[in-house]
Design a protein around this nucleic acid. Sequence first.
RNA 1: GCCGAAGUGGCGGAAUGGCAGACGCCAGAGACUUAAAAUCUUUUGUCCGAUAGGGCGUGCGGGUUCGAGUCCCGCCUUCGGCACCA
Length: 809
Amino acid sequence: MTVSDYSPRLIEPKWQRRWSDARAFEASNTSSKPKFYALVEFPYPSGEGLHAGHPRPYTAMDVIARKRRLQGFNVLFPMGWDAFGLPTENYAIKHRIHPRIVTERNISRFRKQCQSIGFSFDWSREVDTTSPSYYRWTQWIFLQLFKHGLAYKAEIPINYCTSCKVGLANEEVVGGACERCGGEVVRRIKKQWMLKITSYAQTLLDGLDTVDFLDKIKSQQRNWIGRSEGASVDFQLVSSSSGEPLEPLRVFTTRPDTLFGATYMVIAPEHPLITNYSNIITNLDEIHSYIDASSRKSDFERTEIAKDKTGVPVNGVSAVNPATGKRIPVWTSDYVLMGYGTGAIMAVPGHDERDWEFAKRFNLPIVEVVSGGDVQSSAYTDVDDGTLVNSGFLDGLRVADAKRVMIDWLSSRNLGESKIQYKLRDWVFSRQRYWGEPIPIVDCPNCGLIPLPEDQLPLVLPEVDNYLPTDAGESPLAAMTDWVNTTCPHCGGPAKRETDTMPQWAGSSWYFLRYMDPYNNNQFASKEALDYWGMVDWYNGGMEHTTLHLLYSRFWHRFLYDIGAVPFPEPYAKRTSHGMILGANGEKMSKSRGNVVNPDDVIAEFGADTLRMYEMFLGAFDQAIPWSTQGVAGCRRFLDRVWRVQQFVVNDETIPQKLLADVHGCVKKVSEDIERMKFNTAIASMMTLVNVIYNEGAITRGTLRVLLALLNPFAPHITEEIWELQNLGEPIYSRDWPQWDPAALERDEIEIAIQVGGKVRGRVTLPLNLSKEEAERVLPEHPAILSAANGRTIRKLIYVPGRIVNLVL
RNA sequence: GCCGAAGUGGCGGAAUGGCAGACGCCAGAGACUUAAAAUCUUUUGUCCGAUAGGGCGUGCGGGUUCGAGUCCCGCCUUCGGCACCA
């Protein structure tokens, strides 16, 4: 038969309409089928629209979702918009348009683009974090956090972006610069809303053992939470002149075994000790000028000049080493950070590199307490191989034992105890910006911070004239006196609303729950919906969100679990991640580099199915790969070949054994590779099958069915169209995933290689069930073996059934 | 410095310890065509060789093994993350 040309321009919109009309991909909250919840990170709808990187994770999960539907699952595969955020606000400021309008415009562009690629999202469940019916529940969750003491306001030094004029979470500071705009970040003292994620440090760590995340994701989260085991130790402070005892100074150390080697102490420049004892400190001027100098450094500068230690002694105050009983000096230096541990350390220069450098720089005594190195020339830090010396009752013990003995000794004297310390810090939750969720708190001069009653939610963003933050660093909402001035929900007296808004991470911390029940006006999701859908079965997203979104949403979710609002403790059963798509020049795609590929252009030239195929074929899914226009053309060529397979269709259904094995082998390969996210090799195997069909010049209708069903999740439009043209029945999306028959893959005999000393020297066809014993009897006489041996004596013959014959001559 | 991933043709990349380079791109040859494009067939790691065949080949150096891209030891390089975290 003759076949008309493959025309994606015509068939793609046709099938997109059909799917939509048939509600083919809408999930049901009441289904007898097993459920499967597939999730991709919802995008920030920027003004630029989708770029070539977006479709990669979406197509991957679309392939999985479509396969699961064919496998008989009730699949929830939703999409939404993480639409609060700075770029929209900046655009609104520049062009004097309300961010709401910008957001709506961007969303409709993104939605249209996603639909043109043929993703099987359930559009009936779309969510938008900026819609009041959505952020009402973001505010509700915040109120629960507040009521449980996990949201608090604190005057703390924060990372402040001088360009965005907002406070940033530690996670948002990248190399000393603002994660979003690249602007300079300085430290500033400001009263900010904080979320106590640190209370969940251990829970978040333990939860990782219960979920199926890629190892690199788990290790990055563990790293970020940064648990370390050690001891807290109190050092008695005394007045240097009178010897009069002062308050004890508490430190955290991971090396309590080295306590006898602590020859001085160092406190952070911000440590309260300096103010507390200003009356007895004798060099206050010197100290203050040091504090002043170091506070002017940003965090970035502080670490940049890490090589050269600076510091000044705190004269007038001394500490007593509890192990030796000796008086040791107290110093202040910015290599000790106020934000970790207690902001003070015991310095053991013999066995800590930083302390060693500091001691050398300022001529402080270095004492060896663990043998094995030369502490005068460098710090000896090995903990596995060393014995305690110069340490009284610890002498002769190994480091690990000495730690235990010292902790026992300290706790029995009430001088210290074992302690676990985390690097994780509380989450700075305030933004001095307009385009975010208002924080539903009222500040009353009489009652303090009062939560808005829940029936007053959502607290809707008011209209303002100007979206710029004030020069004082206040949110633009602060200028809205009508809105700010309110009454206290508690006493009814005059009070002021909080004018900071929430960070972008708020709305994305729970959005997967809203998809389960997006129109519920009474709860963020009903108990039935939560019970039915449960954990997200498979969540794919970017590595860049591992310590931000992924950690934050696990924290919120675990909190919701603890207050009984959700029935399962971890949100995501499985988490995978994709590699970035780079520009053709191997660099990150960006407007400034001019290497951005717009999916619309690819669709216009080649079609959506080609775009999808190429995104899945270009390489290993978890690796960054440069875009190649020629590679795209190759995928289009493959689809053209699939289209022309129609000319080979025969009515005879008998298939030769060899071809049968190829077909079943392909079903197995594609089925298994999709589960492992080895999309490139799944496609390669389908290409091979099509090549075989071309060589045969014939394909049965049964084989065509199998081929189209396997290819359908990758290229859904063309496969449905051929299916329809060939009258193969109800559309593929309503059918079953093909099964493979292991029996069809079995062969009686197989050709294997003959190696001589590991080098291939011949081939031999043998029965597959030839046993080892039989082989050792028969093979030395086999002509193919004798020819490979080429007259030399066979000293040893290794036969691996179905694999190899190796001769040692 | 620490944690993680990776290094294979001209290119993107395949290979449960068992035939390295599947599949695709690029390039070459042929068929079809007045011609070109498209399509179909075919060649394509590298060196020696007319062929048969052989040598060399998975970042580098060792090792284990009948057999190593794969496992072990020691390096080098690249990328991602963390970093004065006591």
